[in-house]
Design a protein around this nucleic acid. Structure first.
Length: 269
DNA sequence: AACATTGACAACCGCCTGAAG
DNA sequence: ACTTCAGGCGGTTGTCAATGT
């Protein structure tokens, strides 16, 4: 089963200007898709997969080339906090940027910076709010306290690990969450304010990541910790078209900051 | 000037998913 | 229900330019 490998007399390595030209003119004339037959039709000695990659990552006209701005960088960091190594999802929120570009940027720049930052803040990051995309290389003790949550995205090769009792050991946590049914206060200590700078984006991203399960999971823990009654407050529809929901638009009482703890663990209390 | 190291990024590889037959 | 295949994804490698010694 599977596809025939890209080999046998086909070109590999860097693309030449002529190959690029052939690919561009073919796609301009016939459109994208049918990658398997494309090389033969376009007169290229490449496998279809290679053509697709070259087009998507380099030749596409809407690709934004050049340095990644500070804003884009911040967005990548936040989205990575939320989504992990889901580069295509992250790229989908950065117009003109490709998943490959973002992945490379993370691996060469942001990832190292994040690691360095983490080692500096090691004692603080021992907080029970740790969220990580690293495969569980943690100790037995840590494993005993954590649970792996698999999101329902189309593909997931990363793990998001939540502490099983994130709040029980914290006596300084408060998360105020106003839901469609009315305000619910989880009073667990002193407050900690967080911000959601890009609320639209966040909610949109949460939907594409099927975040209702994630939020319900987190919410469940909050209520359990305070002997509250659990009723799943988040559903898919909330994120599908949040602007249409009177409970989730700008004029409502829902604070977008309520969601921020999911995208910026550094700001978690 | 010559060599070694590092950083950036293009490209490849293997695997997975979903659609079609 | 099962197989096949195209398309897509994330991880990894290869290459080359810039920088350091």
């Amino acid at each position: 089963m599977g596809r025939s490998p890209c080999s046998k007399g086909l070109n590999k390595g860097a693309w030449t200007a002529l190959e690029d030209k052939l690919l561009i003119s073919y796609i301009q004339a016939h459109g994208e898709g049918k990658w398997r037959n494309l090389p033969k039709r376009a007169g290229l000695k490449r496998c279809g997969k290679s053509c697709r990659l070259r087009w998507l990552n380099y030749l596409r006209p809407d690709i934004k080339r050049g340095n990644i701005s500070h804003d884009e960088e911040e967005l990548i960091i936040r989205l990575h906090n939320l989504l992990g190594n889901r580069w295509s999802l992250i790229a989908g929120r950065l117009p003109g940027r490709t998943d490959n570009e973002i992945k490379n940027y993370w691996n060469t720049t942001l990832g190292k910076r994040a690691k360095a930052q983490a080692s500096i803040e090691a004692p603080r990051s021992k907080s029970t709010h740790d969220i990580t995309t690293e495969p569980s290389s943690s100790s037995q003790a840590t494993k005993a306290k954590t649970e792996v949550i698999w999101t329902q995205a189309t593909r997931c090769s990363s793990e998001v690990i939540f502490p099983l009792q994130p709040h029980a050991t914290h006596d300084t946590d408060v998360i105020n969450l106003t839901l469609p049914q009315g305000p619910i206060d989880q009073e667990m200590g002193d407050g900690a304010m967080v911000e959601a700078h890009t609320g639209t984006l966040v909610l949109d991203s949460l939907y594409s990541n099927d975040a209702s399960h994630l939020l319900n999971f987190e919410f469940n823990h909050l209520l359990k910790a305070s002997d509250g009654e659990f009723e799943e407050p988040f559903d898919e529809a909330m994120f599908k078209d949040w602007t249409a929901d009177p409970c989730l638009n700008d004029n409502s009482t829902v604070g977008l900051e309520s969601f921020a703890f999911l995208i910026d663990p550094d700001e978690w209390p």
